[in-house]
Design a binder for these strands. Structure first.
Length: 311
DNA sequence: CTGTAATCCTGCGAGC
DNA sequence: TGCTCGCAGGATTACA
């Protein structure tokens, strides 16, 4: 157990550092953890709205999320206070004064937002938490219910959980050596490797495609076929794409909104994602779509030449 | 160790 | 208008 916790602590890294919350959050986001853009945006929005707020009444729906039905444990949150709002990969961590941590995953259609308590409750709202004394509510809404809500007794237990799921490094904390080590022996397509949360935490379908385009690598290229140069180029591209996306508050395709209900804007900056048949912004050739790991992969057949010599 | 497909859900747009 | 089909920011599971 001791060893597990130590390893988990290492993986959580700077997130557990005491000073985390005293650092101005713009600095934090811009230079330390520009990550999975939508989740980072939610976390940045929520942080100033939740910090120090006490939880009043709590109301939970009865439908199942991926983590199951929201249990009665949710009522024990009443009276507790938000002490930190963090992100790890695509996970949102709401830390409480009691030391407990509420873990939230947005899945595909999750929304976590602070709203006026008087505002009408939208369909598919599964959780409402009153913020005592400010006439506001934290609401969790999730149309497809692929999201996750779970309470941990302490930051250490949460760290162990991340450890057990083998969550990889934050893209910004990964070194080229780390990334290369994970890719160089793999026969898997590089697109699949990017989506693998055990390698880099937080990269999803949009940003995998955009990063591969930016580094001019075909999504089907095998990990072990990548040169050292390719690996470095790809890691830098991932970091750049994520940073840019965060500065646009993430991408809204359908349902995504930030912690204040605002939509993202990065969908207007897509080079290849969701643009099958449209002209590549570099060479004008039509963007193509294939299926990898059960997900759409978008790429330019000219700029990202096929490893097998066919597109 | 791979990849593939199905699964958990709801909603929307395309095409007929 | 109304139906069916395919597809969607994720991740796990079973199976070949």
């Amino acid at each position: 157990m001791e060893r597990v916790n130590k390893k988990a602590e290492r993986i959580l890294g700077s997130l557990l550092e005491e000073n985390y919350n005293s650092v101005p959050f713009l600095f934090l986001g811009e230079y330390l953890l520009p990550e999975l853009p939508e989740v980072e945006t939610v976390v940045r929005d929520l942080r100033p709205l939740l910090m120090g707020q006490s939880i009043g009444g709590v109301l939970a729906g009865k439908k199942k999320l991926r983590s199951g039905k929201i249990g009665r444990w949710i009522l024990t949150l009443e009276g507790d206070q938000f002490s930190a709002v963090r992100r790890r990969g695509k996970w949102i961590i709401l830390e409480l004064a009691s030391g407990r941590c509420l873990l939230v995953h947005l899945g595909m259609t999750g929304q976590l937002k602070v709203m006026n308590a008087r505002e009408g409750v939208e369909s598919h709202t599964h959780l409402r938490m009153e913020l005592a004394g400010v006439e506001k509510e934290l609401r969790y809404r999730d149309i497809r219910r692929f999201g996750w809500l779970e309470l941990f007794a302490s930051a250490e237990e949460l760290a162990s959980y991340f450890c057990s799921m083998k969550l990889g490094l934050e893209p910004w904390e990964a070194s080229p050596e780390y990334f290369q080590e994970k890719l160089q022996n793999s026969q898997r397509p590089v697109k699949n490797l990017l989506l693998d949360q055990e390698i880099l935490a937080g990269v999803g379908n949009i940003y995998a495609d955009e990063s591969l385009f930016e580094s001019r690598l075909h999504p089907r290229k095998k990990g072990k076929s990548l040169s050292r140069e390719d690996v470095e180029k790809l890691l830098k591209a991932v970091q750049r794409v994520l940073t840019r996306a965060i500065s646009h508050r993430g991408s809204t395709l359908r349902n995504y909104v930030g912690g204040t209900g605002l939509k993202g804007g990065f969908q207007n900056e897509f080079q290849v994602y969701g643009r099958e048949g449209e002209a590549c912004p570099v060479c004008s050739k039509a963007v193509e779509r294939i299926v990898l790991a059960g997900r759409s992969a978008h790429y330019c057949p000219i700029c990202q030449p096929s490893p097998k010599g066919r597109s």
